[in-house]
């Protein structure tokens, strides 16, 4: 039992991201309101960003901004946290913001036409066509 506790505590970052991700997916599947679905999608994307950022963490590391003194070029990587996941997540954040913008535009266009954002009501309106 204590092994399990150690395993969970040593990797609780992964547990947290998985829980967040499941909340997001559940909202995307179960909610009927389009905006709620969008929020679920955002939670889902954010959980992946957290996952990546937690990969980059190092115990005892500081932010990856180095001393810029001439002649001092020996850098010990273990002292700085990993910059690569941060770079990747900058890109992923931008992608998720862009997707969210386009999704809101689509939702607004749907609202303009159907005067509602509830998915079942929209489908009711579309059915007779």
């Amino acid at each position: 039992m204590s092994d399990l506790v150690v395993a969970v505590l040593g990797k609780y970052n992964y547990w947290l991201y998985i829980i967040l991700m499941m909340i997001g997916i559940y909202a995307m599947i179960a909610k009927k309101n389009l905006i709620k679905k969008l929020v679920g999608m955002n939670i889902f994307q954010t959980s992946i960003i957290l996952f990546y950022v937690s990969i980059g963490c190092k115990k005892g590391g500081t932010i990856p901004i180095l001393e810029h003194s001439p002649g001092h070029h020996m850098v010990e990587p273990a002292h700085y946290i990993n910059p690569l996941p941060h770079v990747l997540m900058l890109t992923a954040i931008v992608v998720s913001v862009s997707t969210f913008g386009v999704a809101l535009a689509l939702a607004l266009k749907i609202y303009r036409k159907h005067k509602t954002l509830e998915e079942d009501e929209i489908l009711m309106q579309l059915r007779p066509e």
């Binding site: 040593g10 990797k11 963490c57 190092k58 115990k59 990856p64 810029h68 850098v75 990993n82 690569l84």
Partner: peptide, 24 residues
């Protein structure tokens, strides 16, 4: 997975370490 904050995890020693050493 390597445990959280492990400085010897593969993600920290391969490509990223090269970037940290060579950036300046």
């Amino acid at each position: 997975f390597p445990s959280w904050g492990d400085p010897a995890s593969p993600a920290s020693v391969h490509v990223a370490a090269h970037h940290l050493k060579k950036a300046i």
